[in-house]
Design a protein around this nucleic acid. Sequence first.
DNA 1: AGTGAAGGGTCGAGGGCCAAACCATTTTCC
DNA 2: GGAAAATGGTTTGGCCCTCGACCCTTCACT
Lengths: 240, 240
Amino acid sequence: VLPSASSRPDAVFARVRSQTAFEETVDQLGTAIKLGLLAPGSRLPAERDLCERLGIARSTLRQALTALGHSGHVYATRGRHGGTFVADPQPPAHPPSPEMLSQWRETCDRRLAVELGVAVLAADRAESAELDALDDVALALEDALEDFPAYRQADIRLHVGLAEAAHSACLVREMTEVQGAMTDLIAHIAHPPEVLTSSNAQHRRLLAAVRERDGMRAARVMTEHLKGTEHVLAGLLPGG
Amino acid sequence: VLPSASSRPDAVFARVRSQTAFEETVDQLGTAIKLGLLAPGSRLPAERDLCERLGIARSTLRQALTALGHSGHVYATRGRHGGTFVADPQPPAHPPSPEMLSQWRETCDRRLAVELGVAVLAADRAESAELDALDDVALALEDALEDFPAYRQADIRLHVGLAEAAHSACLVREMTEVQGAMTDLIAHIAHPPEVLTSSNAQHRRLLAAVRERDGMRAARVMTEHLKGTEHVLAGLLPGG
DNA sequence: AGTGAAGGGTCGAGGGCCAAACCATTTTCC
DNA sequence: GGAAAATGGTTTGGCCCTCGACCCTTCACT
């Protein structure tokens, strides 16, 4: 009845991704650690508590923790005041895998969607106290122009914090996922202080727009902000 | 070193969702059928081909097809020109589950993010021919004001088509997922023709903005468009 | 020394998924 | 009419993941 009857999106028969519980746990905890959401030196909940929160068996959780311990991201101590702790310092990041690099544009697209949604929703729902806390993070960003790892860390806090201010649990989760993927991509490329300075200007304008409840202005600033990274990647990676 | 050291997003220790390959296949194919991406009466690829495309074993695929057959969404015939076909007519939709209803706001948030990303990217990347095809779909929408199932079908074609015009495979996939969830929510509520008329006006403005490569205007129109459905849901469902 | 809380380890049962056959049915071709 | 081909339908065996239960080891506090 409609035109183009034979057009069927490839997504319909796309590969079904079935990660095991073990893999998903390693990804989730590993990403949280890499993003600094779990600070180095901080203690994870006890295994018997954590496995219940994650909805998996303790033996499965232990496999994940063993893997994270083997890669140097966590360590465990036994005894009365023991526990599993985030390693400090963290092990050096791996260079991005070839398949990761080949999907960099898709990753940027996902990020654009999540960040735009967060910007618009945060402008609607953010509370004053939450924005005050984000202003503090923006201040910290100003002092980290020379130390990219520290800058990236604060940048992540800002973006994830904005997602929390949007009061949408699913967007917080998607934000952490996509920031994890982005970190893998940009951790190994140069970031001159000038670029970070202009990024900070955009952060300030973004927070101002959100505070004034101007969702569309926030979306516009966010778009420009993300275009910056995308241009850097387009210059360095194949498949532009 | 940073303020608010003890704030840890709930997402870090959120429940790990490990769907089985069987469940994911039922979801993926079932959603494609419910959305009309696989037209009633059309034939699916042969099991031996399809399982390879999906990256699963044939026995697992057969479990999914058996489940879809049991619910009346597909039927199979044997022999030289046999195959698995999408049922025509489709079985009536189930009323949304309580847990689905309780998550309606999160679903809307996800949709906002995906649709905003698609709107901005489509304005950047859509080709003229793709937009012409979407104009045809918009025309079909004008003639379906009295028949909500048909309207919804065309509406989905428009939104998924826009995602394809954004040339981002992952956003197409997310769009189908989120449209499937939205369909479950809105299939059982009243849609007076006046609402659909105003929706159509927004569709036209959206396509116009995309054609003029004005991403931010497309985003603004899209936001208004989605606010409409959200207000309807907010009036009918709990937890506003 | 005892207790309690934490991680470390082992074992077996159950189930999902896979691979590779083989069976049944229908159509086409020789 | 019979063979071949293409399809869905069925069975079997095995591997690996996950679970749950149990016990051990370590170590601070009392």
